[in-house]
Amino acid sequence: MYNETVMDHFTNPRNVGVIEDADVVAETSSPGCGDITKIYLKIRDNRIADVKFQTLGCAAAIASSSMATELVKGKTLEEAWKLTRKDVADALGGLPEPKLHCSVLAEDAIRRAINQYRIDRGLAPW
């Protein structure tokens, strides 16, 4: 059902865990299945210096979080904001049709974190 890249990111997820002194933490849950992704960001000079995630979800959700965190690491907030679920699914070499919605968790959690960071600093959310 899943390709090798997805299985690799599922069985050996990158960036899984917690950042104790994160600058911002955000969480999102899927209205459909109730699965949850939590994102921790460490931000230096407008760049994502470190990122970690936790996911309670299916293999596609875990693999998407893993890939999405890889894609935004080191990026500016502007660049990270532009990350879409399609970018994540493409980087994973595709997800099965019924599992496409699972990749939205990572995108949504990262955007929430970025906006929360902006709000915390008195900036208007994007």
Binding site: Y2, M7, T11, C58, A59, I62
Partner: peptide
């Protein structure tokens, strides 16, 4: 509690 069934099945499968 706290985990997903599909993820569990795939890990067991491995």
């Amino acid at each position: 509690a706290g985990i997903d069934g599909e993820a569990l099945l795939l890990m067991l499968d491995a």
